[in-house]
């Protein structure tokens, strides 16, 4: 009985934890996405920062590049993302 109550309360705590960080997570992903975009700004036709900076960082940005590609593929669904953020 005691264990069940503890499990029930823990699931609540986990739920609150996830809810409390979800907005910061979204902000973090946007920052990581933008960081990769800026490092490879020449992809957008903006040759700054100098391309060697992007090249020097290229070996360490695997995760950010994956995120950037994922975010780019969802650019047409920005409205849905916005509603999801607002929990609508």
């Amino acid at each position: 009985m005691f264990k069940q109550i503890k499990k029930f309360i823990n699931s609540f705590i986990e739920g609150f934890k996830q809810q409390s960080t979800s907005a910061i997570e979204l902000e973090l992903h946007e920052m990581e996405n933008a960081f990769a975009l800026i490092c490879f700004a020449s992809l957008m036709g903006m040759p700054s920062p100098p391309s060697y900076v992007g090249m020097a960082l290229l070996p360490y940005l695997e995760y950010e590049i994956q995120l950037m590609i994922f975010k780019s593929s969802r650019l047409d669904d920005k409205l849905a993302e916005f509603f999801a953020l607002g929990d609508i």
């Binding site: 973090l28 920052m31 933008a34 800026i38 920062p49 100098p50 900076v53």
Partner: peptide
């Protein structure tokens, strides 16, 4: 030109790491 960008990127990166650490601390 590079100094300007590298300083900004360092600041930006530190923000990312801070945000990651804060999230990891809670969840």
């Amino acid at each position: 030109n590079s100094k300007l960008w590298i300083n900004k990127l360092i600041k930006w990166r530190k923000k990312i790491l801070n945000a990651r650490a804060s999230i990891a601390n809670i969840n």
